[in-house]
Simulated scan of single mutants.
Amino acid sequence: MSGRRTGRLAGRPTDRAEDAIAWLLCTLGLFAVLIAVLVGRQLYSCGLDQARYEAASRSPIRATLLEDAVRASVTTDGAPTTVRALANWTGPDGVDRSGAVAVPEDARAGTVVDAWADRDGSIVPRPALASDAIVRGVLLAGLLLATMLALLRLAWTGARAVIATRNSAAWEREWAAVEPEWRRTA
């Protein structure tokens, strides 16, 4: 046996570099999945905590409209963006209050609508749901993972372009050395 290496490890230095870069990028890809999962779990946990806090600090109320709904603004397609009307309600603290609430566009004075109030009786948006936390965690983790994988793909494409350029230059040098010898024997 001559001790000469054969196989992929005996190839050009660029082949070994390409293999090393592929292994590195695959490893980074696995870390990207792990990071995305951990970030998604953290976002879900924070969203769930927020939903629990809002559920504990907000109460559903019934508000009675004191006037017909008024279109506050209109989108370019004519659909209302905000419809508010003056209403009164009893807050969770038992105090009667009044103010503007979001209502359906065709709501008339005297209509009873559902709304949410904080502990002080002020109108607030509905509390977040657990499903909102799930959606937020999954979507943002997916976006993060897609971004990281796109960057890894970009790195792989760049590395392949550099390696191809170096291989092409090496092939040209090798051909320049072999071609005159080949012509003489042909």
Rank of each mutant, 00 (worst) to 15 (best):
V135M: 08
R136Y: 11
R136C: 05
G137H: 03
G137Q: 05
G137N: 05
G137R: 01
V138D: 02
V138R: 06
V138H: 07
L139T: 11
L139I: 10
L139E: 08
L139D: 07
L140I: 10
L140M: 12
L140N: 05
L140T: 03
L140D: 00
L140W: 12
L140F: 09
A141S: 13
A141M: 09
A141P: 04
A141N: 02
A141Y: 05
G142I: 02
G142M: 09
G142E: 06
G142D: 05
G142T: 03
L143R: 01
L143Y: 02
L143A: 03
L143Q: 00
L144M: 13
L144W: 00
L144P: 01
L145A: 02
L145K: 05
L145W: 06
A146K: 09
A146C: 09
A146F: 08
A146M: 11
T147F: 15
T147R: 01
T147Y: 09
T147Q: 11
M148R: 05
M148P: 02
M148H: 01
M148Q: 07
L149R: 01
L149N: 00
L149S: 05
A150W: 13
A150C: 08
A150G: 10
A150Q: 04
A150T: 07
L151K: 03
L151G: 14
L151N: 09
L151I: 10
L152M: 03
L152N: 05
R153V: 09
L154M: 13
L154I: 12
A155N: 03
A155P: 03
W156E: 13
T157N: 11
T157E: 09
G158K: 14
G158S: 13
G158T: 10
G158Q: 15
A159S: 14
A159K: 03
A159C: 08
R160N: 07
R160Y: 03
R160P: 03
A161K: 15
V162K: 00
V162N: 00
V162G: 00
I163V: 15
A164R: 15
A164L: 11
A164Q: 10
T165K: 15
T165P: 00
T165Y: 07
T165S: 13
T165W: 15
R166C: 11
R166T: 13
R166N: 12
R166K: 10
R166V: 15
N167F: 06
N167A: 03
N167C: 05
N167R: 07
S168R: 13
S168K: 08
S168C: 10
S168L: 12
S168P: 01
A169G: 06
A169W: 11
A169T: 06
A169K: 09
A169Q: 14
A170Y: 12
A170K: 03
A170S: 08
A170V: 01
A170G: 05
A170I: 04
W171N: 06
E172K: 15
E172M: 12
E172H: 14
R173V: 00
R173C: 04
R173F: 08
R173L: 06
E174A: 14
E174D: 15
E174P: 09
E174H: 14
